[in-house]
Structure formats: structure tokens, C-alpha cells
Design a protein around this nucleic acid. Structure first.
Lengths: 115, 115
DNA sequence: GCATCATATCACTCCTTGCTGATATGTTTA
DNA sequence: TAAACATATCAGCAAGGAGTGATATGATGC
């Protein structure tokens, strides 16, 4: 039964990882995190910089907020968002480092959509 | 037009990142990468250790192979898979480090499925 | 209190993707 | 060449999640 115990123990960690990566697996959310990595912004600034629609940005911000990847502060009638941890930027940088190695492969992979 | 140029330039990088994260955003693929991080394995060993069905493992291996995240060598009638770069393990560790900070948030986030 | 602006939520549709069962390909041994 | 085993592929189904447009909430200033 040892194998199954290990598997179940690992499963929880795997689910957490999967959920985190799903949070990062959307171009819109990556774009939002990207601009927020450069500094805190209010929503309509994020809309402007990313070119996404306002409800779309709002939806993704809610998602990122629930996941704890961003934090928000009210500022008058604005709400300012920022990344919740510098580790997020670190993770994105690691991803880029990995992409430097496997980029062609990832680009060529047709198992999921191009854009 | 500078803003748009930057946006388009960034878009390519964002798409690459998104694609990489989508590759990592599935529990089955994470389970496979997890066991492969401990050492190379032939397919039926991966099946045994992960508890996934054989066609399912095969499908995900193809995906991971196309993306360049794993590599394979024929060994008689077996095919042995291994992770293609230690950076993959590094990225997974970074993800865990981030999860140590935002774990409750990610766990609580209901924007996408629990399991 | 009313108009205005900033942001959030809702209902809906479409597309993507993962899983399963059956089957095909390919390799080895007899 | 036939049988047995390892792995890959295919068709089809089911569910998740992204985007949009319209609308609701909430804050500010007159």
C-alpha cells in the first residue's frame, strides 16, 4: 500500500501545481501579470496597456486575486493591483529560461492551440 | 505606435509562456514529469507509477515530447523517456516555492475546477 | 441627491482539451 | 511467419474555461 500512499500524498501537491499553472496558462492573465510586474496599476491602466476588454480584465483580476497571485488596494474610486510576491516574477523568469532551451519544441507543439 | 510595437513584441513571449504553462497545467502531465524527475522510465513503468491508463500516458508523452519537455530513447522493444532539461525540475521547484506563499489562495480559488 | 466615472458581475456561447475503449503499428522471440 | 508484448493512434464524448455585451455596484463631485 506504500505506493498508493505515496501517490495520494503526491496527488495533493500535483493538484496544487496544476492549479497554479492553470492560473498562469492564459495569455490574458500573463499579459496582466506582465504589466503588473513593472509596478502597481489601476484597472483602466491595465485595460489600456494590454488592449483587453474591461470585463475581461476584471474577470481575470478576480481570478488572480482569489488565487493570491495579485493583491489590491482601494485608492479613491480606483482600485490598484499589484503582484503579491516577487516569486511570481522569479517563476516567470525561470519559465523564460526554460523556454530558451525548449522554445522551438513548444512553438512546434500542436497539441493545443497556437493562440 | 510605440505602445503597439511593444505589445506585439511582448505578445510573442506571452504566447510562448502561455503555451509552456498549458503544457504544465494538467495533473496527468505533472504526474508524469514528477516520476520522470526521479529518473528515466519506460512507458509501462510510468503507467504503473502514476495509475493512469496506457493510452492516456501515451497521449501526454507525445504532447510532452512534441513540446521538447521530455526526450525518448528506444531500448529494445521498450521506449525510455526522460526529462529533457534539469531546468524543468527547477521550474517545478520554483512553483512549489511560490505555492508555499500563496497556497491557501490557490486552494480557495474556484475559478477553475478543483480536480 | 444626481450625474459620472471606475470596476464588478451575469448570462450566454463557442472552442479547446482531456479521457476512454478499441484498434493499429512496431519489435522481439520462437 | 506467427504469437506476444510494448507503445501509439483514432473517434467520440463530456466538461472546463475564455470572451462578449449588457447591466449592476460603488465611489466621487456638483
Amino acid at each position: 500500500m506504500q505506493v498508493f500512499a505515496d501517490r495520494n500524498a503526491a496527488a495533493a501537491g500535483i493538484e496544487r501545481r496544476a492549479k497554479l499553472f492553470r492560473g498562469l496558462a492564459d495569455p490574458s492573465r500573463l499579459a496582466i501579470l506582465g504589466v503588473l510586474c513593472e509596478g502597481p496599476l489601476v484597472v483602466h491602466e491595465i485595460v489600456k496597456r494590454t488592449g483587453l476588454s474591461q470585463p475581461n480584465v476584471s474577470n481575470h483580476l478576480r481570478c488572480l486575486l482569489d488565487c493570491g497571485l495579485v493583491a489590491s488596494d482601494r485608492d479613491g474610486r480606483f482600485i490598484r493591483y499589484r503582484i503579491s510576491s516577487p516569486r511570481i516574477a522569479a517563476l516567470l523568469n525561470d519559465a523564460d529560461a526554460l523556454l530558451d532551451v525548449v522554445a522551438e519544441g513548444v512553438g512546434a507543439c500542436d497539441n493545443y492551440r497556437e493562440a
